[in-house]
């Protein structure tokens, strides 16, 4: 399924401000994501990309403004209530539980709504995980841990995925695999908001790129613009 440019936004973020204790991390974020779209948040380290995902998910509790998902306001809701609306989150550090084995990690998230990928199908799609399902989750390689982190949220039935730097710290061949997986998910109709610093990776998978600086959106580029105007993007990122 491809995104429809005229479709009503699935997620609308307006004037989102967020704080870690007294320190303000987001200074009025405005953007939206349409159904079936794959949008990246790009920017320098500390720009507020991960905080944006954590704020949408309610993990950063102190936030103001508006986050509307399927016309429902998420500000004021607890993280588990937001997850039950159909939003799944895969954090940057992958958050594999060291006290659980691979199988337990994989089946930990509950099925929240219809359309979740059955466990048997997950194990078919991720054969490495099937082979190592009795091993401690943290004994997997970085790439396998990333696969596990993405695979487990697919069983919930959530159709909107927040993926935080899935390519970080991985070998190029594994990054390619992750990219193929994300494209497959997009083709299956998932809507994805992806935080990414790897421009090559972002270029290959995304429909649209939102550039963040100092906790605010400073530019939005289409997939074509990212390719044709790389100088502009590199200027933002300081690379």
């Amino acid at each position: 399924m491809n995104s429809d440019a005229n479709a009503a936004p699935l997620l609308q973020v307006k004037d989102l401000r967020a704080w870690y204790n007294e320190s303000q991390a987001l200074h009025g974020m405005n953007f939206d994501v349409r159904p079936g779209e794959l949008v990246t948040l790009i920017g320098r380290n500390g720009a507020g990309k991960s905080t944006t995902l954590r704020s949408i998910m309610g993990i950063v509790r102190k936030r103001t403004g508006s986050i509307c998902y399927e016309d429902e306001e998420l500000i004021g809701k607890r993280t588990f209530q937001i997850a039950r609306k159909g939003i799944a989150y895969c954090p940057e550090e992958r958050a594999i539980f060291s006290l659980l084995n691979v199988g337990e990690n994989l089946t930990l998230p509950p099925v929240l709504r219809q359309g979740g990928v059955p466990d048997s199908e997950l194990l078919k799609q991720f054969p490495n995980l099937r082979e190592r399902r009795k091993s401690r989750g943290t004994l997997l390689s970085g790439g396998e841990q990333q696969m596990l982190a993405i695979a487990r949220i697919l069983r919930t039935g959530s159709q909107f995925l927040l993926l935080d730097e899935p390519s970080e710290g991985l070998a190029p061949v594994v990054v390619k695999e992750i990219g193929q997986l994300i494209l497959r998910l997009k083709a299956q109709g998932y809507t994805i908001l992806l935080v990414e610093q790897n421009l090559q990776f972002a270029r290959l998978v995304a429909d649209r790129h939102i550039v963040i600086e100092h906790g605010a959106v400073v530019d939005t580029l289409s997939a074509e613009e990212l390719v044709s105007d790389m100088g502009r993007v590199k200027n933002y990122l300081g690379v």
Partner: peptide, 20 residues
Amino acid sequence: AYLRAATEKPDIVEAFGINV
């Protein structure tokens, strides 16, 4: 398993939709 996971990373367990 929920309990063991929540001892490690309660935020992530809650992000799975579990009422931590």
